Computed example of a mutant assay.
Amino acid sequence: MSNGEGEGRPLVLVSNDDGPESPGLRALLEALNDGRVDVTFIVPEGPRSSSGMSLTFHKPLRAWEREISGVRGYVVSGSPADCVMLGRLRLLDRTPCAVASGINIGDNTGLQDIYASGTVAAALQAALLGIPSSAFSMMVERDGIMAGEREMLEGFAEASRYAAEATRWICEHGLPEGVHLLNVNFPLRIAEPATVELTRPVRRKYENNVVERMDPRGFPYYWVWGRRLGGYSEGTDAWAVYTRGAVSVTPLNIDLASPGSPGMDDLRARLESVGRAKD
């Protein structure tokens, strides 16, 4: 697929986990499609929130061409991670300079959200494929109450200007050494002049709960949910968005290993003794 008309312009791939009808997707496509970069999208056919890094191995994937907000791209019958993999390895005719995922309906602050989020997973899959990437999400509530449609659309329009600028910066400069992707979260409304905080993920954002109920036939079923905590530590992403009303930019690294951690030598010796015991 040829994506864009500008000879020699860099290509940005947009994905998400909310599907093709998302107002955050449309706002981001419109903000990026200003002639400075070529833009395309590959998104799941429907909402895939909290799908994480799931990949589809047990059935074939389908892809359909579609146009959204004047941009041509694809809708795929898989997960956000599937979308990025198909784009990089099959559907696109060149490697994107950046992958921009979002703008998600709801913030993805905190490790509990980051590890579960399909929005972050699309950016993570891009990073694993060697493409600098960013995940963009926006809080859509005020005092625990969902924002109205008009306020939400205005919020996405504001946030998309910052998301597009961050994406162009990545195309121009790449990401700093040791940073593989950015997790960017916006408040519902961005104050002017905007405050941007460089943050770390808060570890716990929710108090998890599982509710058990009975269906009409007497069999149990379960709802998994979480009540959002408050009082987040200064310097964290949730603190920036919920307490400060700021834009949170969290640099992330895909290398999770920590082999030099204190105490690991003792475990290594213990495991090596198992092998010697067999002899």
Rank of each mutant, 00 (worst) to 15 (best):
E151V: 08
R213A: 08
H180Y: 01
L175H: 04
M152A: 15
V211F: 04
G174S: 07
A164H: 02
G235P: 13
N185S: 15
F219M: 14
T236S: 15
G231I: 06
L175P: 10
A157I: 04
W169M: 11
V210D: 06
L182T: 07
E165N: 13
W223V: 15
E149C: 02
L229D: 13
E192I: 01
W169S: 09
Y206S: 09
A159S: 14
E165P: 10
E151S: 05
T236W: 01
E165H: 09
D237T: 11
M214S: 02
L229A: 08
R168W: 02
V196P: 13
R150D: 15
E192L: 11
E172R: 05
V211H: 01
R200W: 04
G218W: 02
M152R: 10
E234I: 09
G178C: 05
G231C: 08
R227I: 09
M152Q: 14
A194K: 02
R213K: 03
L153V: 07
I170C: 11
L175G: 13
E234C: 11
Y222S: 06
R189K: 11
L153E: 07
E197F: 01
E149G: 03
Y221M: 06
V241Y: 01
S233V: 13
N208Q: 10
N209E: 14
E197Y: 01
E192H: 13
R228Y: 01
N185E: 12
E151A: 08
H173T: 10
H180C: 05
T195C: 06
G230W: 03
G178W: 00
W225F: 11
R204S: 08
P201R: 01
S160K: 02
Y206D: 13
E192M: 12
W223A: 13
P220W: 00
R189M: 14
G218Y: 02
F186T: 08
N185F: 01
L188D: 01
A240L: 05
G178N: 08
P193G: 13
R204H: 10
H180P: 04
Y242I: 05
Y242R: 07
L153A: 12
F219L: 12
C171T: 09
D215K: 03
G231N: 14
L182Y: 04
V211R: 02
P201H: 00
V184I: 15
E165A: 15
V196W: 00
S160L: 07
A166W: 04
R203S: 15
E172M: 11
V224E: 15
T199Y: 03
